[in-house]
Design a protein around this nucleic acid. Structure first.
Length: 419
RNA sequence: GUGGGAUUAGUUCAGUUGGUUAGAGCGCUAGUUUGUGGCACUAGAUAUCGUGGGUUCGAGUCCCAUAUCCCACCCCA
């Protein structure tokens, strides 16, 4: 045990990969069904892209990025999320001139230098999606419904949707003023951090974890009650659309996304079972982001789902991912002569698209049967000198032990059609 | 960044107040009279007991350090 996987990284072994394929395939299928197309973006970008895109003041950028200098002296960072890179690509490739909306999805790894715990890794996977150029709440409802369809297709029940609006820069400014009015009389009783937050970012005072502050903050005005008319109309529009298509949600005024770029709609899909890492998916609108990263003013919206967390939830809900059936038939040999014929047959089967296995370990016949049984291979054909003489083989179905006799000359075709 | 638990075979774990060659289940390999698997039975392989120090006649067991894993807080996906 010389080497072990680095902290926060893990191997996804063959026993798990079935579930991953199912999830990846389902996500991509559902996205395609809505008109989204896949994009693949680089694993690293220049550090500045994330500082600007994700936000200089966020925890993610301040202390969780894998940043290093390359041999040309450039500061490079492994992507901590997908949106910044997709926005960069959108601008760089002139996608603004494509018919709106431009809808993209992705399946990426991302990297955050964090202390690990359940459902949190340093290298982790995200399914994500971004849509550019749609202003109104229809697209908000659409991306939420992408997720609902995905969960439904995967057989997941009871994933709770929480929505909120965090307004636009205009209403946030007004809201900050009313927050200061509220907190000003209580400021003396509050913690050091909150006192310093008071001027800079009173929004943060709301989710302070110090018990005394919590009591005071409980009755603070909610941003959602102080939205400007446009933002309020947008939020009402979203609720109306979700109601219309029958997607349930609850409004959680405490959802404040950790990434700076969000505006208006923010939402989360939360596990109802588990607690702390229960946020399976988070997303929202980012109307100012493209412009702030050097593009034209184009509204955007997207989400990212933590695939590891999704898997955790799927497993705890007992989702059945099925099993693979790549190998259809095992060709057991009874002699060296038969083994030669078998190798030829196996090659031909594989050329024709039938998965099969043969003995590679010089095992006894009995051991070959044991192997085929343990490997879960559904059919076994035994070939020895008798079969070669008669020109006939019998194909045994392992599930019930019954067998069929087939002419050797017809064997490949039989496998292609019947197994 | 703060706090808690753990580390013994491929894996899950046992290991008494410190005392001889460190155990079990599962898995793996082979076999149970030579041509039909899953069950059962028999045999076998595999451990520098996380690493480095220390105490002791003697350490898997006690002490110190360190690494790693797991979990919670914070934050997030």
């Amino acid at each position: 045990m010389r080497y072990s996987a680095q902290k926060g990284t893990r191997d996804i072994l063959p026993s798990e990969i079935i579930a991953w394929h199912k999830a990846e395939e389902t996500f991509s299928r559902v996205c395609h069904r809505f008109g989204y197309e896949e994009i693949r973006i680089p694993t690293f970008e220049q550090t500045d892209l994330f500082q600007r895109g994700v936000g200089d003041t966020t925890d993610v950028v301040q202390k969780e990025m894998y940043t290093f200098e390359d041999k040309g002296g450039r500061s490079i960072s492994l992507r901590p999320e997908g949106t910044a890179g997709v926005v960069r690509s959108f601008i760089e490739n002139g996608m603004g001139s494509l018919p709106s909306p431009v809808r993209l999805f992705y399946n990426i790894t991302a990297f955050r230098y964090e202390k690990m715990q359940k459902g949190r890794f340093r290298e982790f996977h995200q399914f994500g999606l971004e849509a550019f150029g749609a202003q109104g709440p229809d697209i908000d409802a659409e991306i939420i419904s992408v997720l609902r369809v995905f969960f439904n297709e995967m057989g997941l029940k009871s994933i709770k949707l929480c929505i909120n609006s965090i307004g636009c820069p205009t209403c946030r400014k007004a809201y900050n003023d009313s927050l200061r009015d509220y907190f000003r009389p209580h400021l003396e009783e509050m913690c050091y951090d909150c006192k310093s937050r008071f001027e800079k970012n009173p929004l943060r005072m709301i989710d302070c974890k110090v018990p005394e502050c919590k009591v005071i903050a409980a009755n603070a005005p909610k941003l959602i009650d102080h939205l400007c008319d446009d933002c309020k109309a947008h939020f009402e529009g979203l609720k109306e659309r979700l109601d219309n298509i029958g997607i349930e949600y609850s409004i959680d005024p405490n959802i404040v996304r950790g990434l700076d770029y969000y505006t208006r709609t923010v939402f989360e899909f939360v596990s109802e079972n588990v607690g702390s890492q229960g946020t399976i998916c988070g997303g929202g609108r980012y109307d100012g982001l493209v412009e702030s990263m050097g593009g034209t003013a184009v509204p955007g919206i997207g989400f990212a789902m933590g695939v590891e967390r999704f898997m955790l939830e799927a497993n705890s809900q007992g989702v059945d991912f099925g099993k693979t059936d790549y190998v259809k038939v095992y060709l057991a040999n009874l002699s060296d002569k038969a083994s030669m014929v078998i190798n030829k047959l196996a090659y031909e089967l594989r050329l024709k698209g039938v998965g099969c296995e043969v003995d590679l370990c010089q095992r006894s016949f009995r051991a070959q049967m044991k192997y085929a049984g343990k490997a879960g291979i559904p059919y076994v054909v035994v070939i020895g000198d008798d079969e070669l003489d008669k020109g006939e083989v019998s194909i045994k179905r392992m599930s019930d032990g019954t067998s069929n006799t087939v002419a050797l000359s017809n064997f490949v075709e039989y496998c292609m059609n019947e197994l």
